[in-house]
Write a protein that binds this DNA or RNA. Structure first.
Lengths: 144, 144
DNA sequence: TACCTTATCGCGAATCGTCCGCAGCTCGCG
DNA sequence: CGCGAGCTGCGGACGATTCGCGATAAGGTA
């Protein structure tokens, strides 16, 4: 049934695209890097190249299926679009990402853009801070 | 006189650092990439390596002299800190960047963070849209 | 359903932004 | 003015992302 989504987006339904879409949808972590997805594919014994993962993600982004985020650690992460917009707050200690939506902020953004003579198309709001989790003392290292 | 700023930041006053600081301060474009700065140095016949530019910019950032931004085009840009915090709105057509500050947005951000149990340290808000400039029809290409 | 056109894929190599390692050079305290 | 820590330039390394190309598969068509 996801094939419909792809077709609606003007993309051929191919195995790589289905698999990647599936991974994005079923992952517990909402934000995946291209490498994350590639690794998951390998674990599932799918014979899909890393270049294809990047190509597909770029196409998905253009089609509005996913959103690409650039958090502060250099590499892009991707997240499925489930219709509802939201912003992010990232813990600098453990790397956890929370999502939130504040209509007040959204409204003010629109009015600021209007005041400056911009037709707003998109925006990215990311806050960085420290969360109060008990187990959040450790620094998340790349090799987790 | 800028030497003072450097010394206060715990950095030796060296020629590369002074030159780079000068470029950041005098540029009409407020947001410069490492390459931009490097190119400017070359044009001024300064014998300064690209690696040094990156090192210096990183030190400046750590010292709070500049802020590093990641707009959507993959490479980092740097901006002098003149004390006042502000956010950005980027025109998707001409690449122009406007700055703004809205205390309402700032306040709501703080309260959202608090509600989520985060101690906020920093944030990045970037809006993308189309500006209404008359001469904004053209697309800014890398080779300008 | 078999065929044909064309988009897509996998692979390896290339590119891009950024950073590291090291030998030589400078800054600035004494 | 001399010395040592800190800085620099260079070239190469590095990770993330993209390109080029021959091989392959998707899906409209007859």
């Amino acid at each position: 049934m996801e094939g419909k989504d792809l077709r609606k987006a003007g993309l051929k339904v191919t195995l790589p695209r289905l698999k990647i879409l599936e991974i994005l949808e079923s992952s517990t972590t909402r934000h995946l890097s291209a490498e994350d997805i590639y690794r998951t594919l390998l674990e599932g014994n799918e014979d899909i190249g890393l270049a294809t993962v990047y190509r597909v993600l770029t196409q998905f982004e253009a089609a509005g299926l996913v959103t690409r985020h650039h958090f502060e650690d250099g590499m892009a992460v991707f997240e499925i679009n489930h219709g509802t917009h939201h912003d992010h707050i990232v813990c600098l200690d453990c790397g956890r990402v929370e999502e939130f939506m504040d209509s007040g902020i959204e409204e003010r953004q629109t009015s600021v853009a209007q005041r400056l003579g911009f037709t707003i198309r998109d925006h990215s709001l990311i806050m960085y801070g420290h969360c109060r989790r008990t187990n959040c003392a450790y620094r998340k290292k790349k090799a987790s």
